[in-house]
């Protein structure tokens, strides 16, 4: 499960980030489409939280369990927290906050891949 899930979520985060940048350039507040994209991303990271935890329990890899799970939890909280922050700021600030949240998700996915030992195969 875990191997490809990072790629999928990175791709989703990438798509949402592009949408956000486009509207940021246009100086627009966060749009419904962004929140829909964010909701899809939220479902993805929640699935990853469950799938990742199960995979961790089953694996015989040398993974730092506590670190791995804490990253999974953080990444699962980011879209919803970011959404609440941006809803309170209906301007390009809100759009920027969503972009920051999505970028953080992407960064954490790379770290998760690292912790899981993705580079080691």
């Amino acid at each position: 499960m875990t191997g490809w899930s990072y790629g999928v979520i990175l791709a989703m985060a990438g798509v949402v980030a592009v949408l956000l940048v486009v509207d940021l350039v246009r100086d627009r507040s966060a749009q419904d489409s962004h929140y829909i994209g964010l909701a899809v991303l939220q479902v993805g990271v929640l699935a990853q939280l469950v799938g990742g935890s199960v995979a961790l329990a089953r694996t015989d890899r040398d993974v730092e369990g506590a670190v791995f799970v804490s990253y999974l939890v953080t990444v699962a909280l980011l879209p919803v927290v970011g959404a609440f922050f941006s809803l309170a700021e209906r301007s390009r600030v809100g759009t920027t906050i969503l972009l920051l949240a999505v970028a953080t998700v992407a960064g954490l996915e790379l770290r998760l891949w690292d912790i899981w030992g993705g580079t080691r195969g």
Partner: peptide, 16 residues
């Protein structure tokens, strides 16, 4: 508020 909210968000993430 305003850009301050974006700062609170980033500082919060970094604090965690």
């Amino acid at each position: 508020t305003g850009w301050g909210r974006a700062l609170v968000f980033v500082y919060g993430v970094f604090a965690v």
